[in-house]
């Protein structure tokens, strides 16, 4: 998936000039257009059908399950309306899982955006061995969340000084013992610590996005600003940053949807424990451990909605700006 995303963002930025010449009358133009898209549609039909069945069909099937009374493998699936959805909010566990997901999202998205932006800004200033640094910052992305989770589980072990390992041991060795803490095992703010490895992993990617954004601001614009007497900071503040808005939005969407459905990182770090419970883990446990398909489907639907709330405005915005061009 990530491979296609940069294209998405630059697509929003640099639109090709309209290809059709302004000459011929409308009707003929329309017919020619039909001829242009029809073979494409025929060729695409198999994948449209496959997506229709395997993505939208299954979403529909999931929704039907979520609205049914199938709370065990064998109970009949009668329509019960939104009962499964409303009941969840009466549960301590569900509220906790939602709180965890929100906390994780805020820290992860905020942290990765800020760090990625900062790294890109530093690289944009044209330092030596830029390519090397770029690669180094991007490397963590090559690792799966599972591997990251296992390593960081050790790094963020909250054992007391006599058994300390990982970061806490490092802090003690450096005489910074006061920095040692509970990390993700803190019962209120633990999920913020859980977001640290995720930030570590994705900040490089955000950096690459922002760097592409910085570089797409034409040098003559900056020159012009400088000639007009802008300081270097003002060049960034008034010329470069405003043009980063589409990149920022794209990064926000990409990080946001990863974050709201986070599963692998949590499972690798902590497994199925309430202290780090998130909706995805809860869903999995309901379906495979408790054999409660309807509840699992309801949670899955909530997750889909949460991601949709984030992505739909973006899709509409992209479609509109494409149409405008």
């Amino acid at each position: 998936m990530p491979a296609s995303e940069p294209a998405l963002t630059t697509g929003g930025r640099r639109r090709p000039a309209p290809a059709a010449p302004a000459g011929p009358p409308r009707r003929r133009r329309r017919r020619r257009r039909v001829r242009a898209w029809l073979p494409g549609l025929v060729l695409l039909t198999p994948s449209i059908v496959a997506i229709g069945v395997f993505v939208y069909g299954l979403i529909g099937w999931n929704l039907r399950l979520a609205l049914s009374s199938k709370t065990t493998d064998i109970s009949p699936a009668h329509f019960v309306g939104l009962r499964n959805f409303t009941r969840l909010w009466g549960e301590e566990r569900w509220n906790l899982a939602v709180r965890h997901a929100v906390l994780f999202t805020v820290v992860f998205v905020g942290g990765a955006l800020l760090l990625g932006w900062l790294l890109a800004l530093l690289l944009d200033k044209g330092m030596r061995a830029e390519a090397g640094f770029r690669a180094v910052y991007l490397f963590p992305m090559a690792i799966s969340f599972i591997a990251t989770g296992i390593v960081w589980r050790w790094l963020m072990n909250p054992a007391p000084p006599e058994r300390a390992v990982g970061l806490n041991a490092l802090f003690q060795r450096l005489g910074l013992g006061f920095l040692a803490n509970d990390w993700w095992q803190n019962d209120r703010w633990g999920m913020a610590a859980m977001a640290v490895p995720a930030v570590w992993q994705m900040a490089g990617y955000v950096m690459a996005l922002f760097l592409a954004g910085f570089r797409s601001v034409p040098e003559d614009l900056r020159e012009a600003a400088r000639v007009d007497g802008c300081s270097e900071w003002q060049v960034y503040r008034y010329v470069v940053f405003p043009q980063l808005r589409p990149v920022t939005l794209a990064a926000l969407i990409i990080l946001g949807h990863i974050s709201l459905k986070v599963f692998d990182l949590v499972v690798a770090m902590s497994g199925k424990q309430i202290i780090t419970d998130v909706p995805a883990v809860y869903m999995w446990q309901m379906v495979f451990d408790a054999h409660n398909p309807a509840k699992g489907a309801a949670i899955a639907t909530y997750m889909l909605l949460a991601v949709a709330v984030l992505i739909l405005p973006y899709l509409i915005w992209t479609l509109r700006s494409e149409r405008r061009s």
């Binding site: 072990n157 007391p160 993700w184 095992q185 770090m269 902590s270 202290i275």
Partner: peptide
């Protein structure tokens, strides 16, 4: 009993 258990139990 839980008061006397490992601090880092969860990991």
């Amino acid at each position: 009993i839980l008061k006397y258990t490992t601090t880092e139990a969860a990991s």
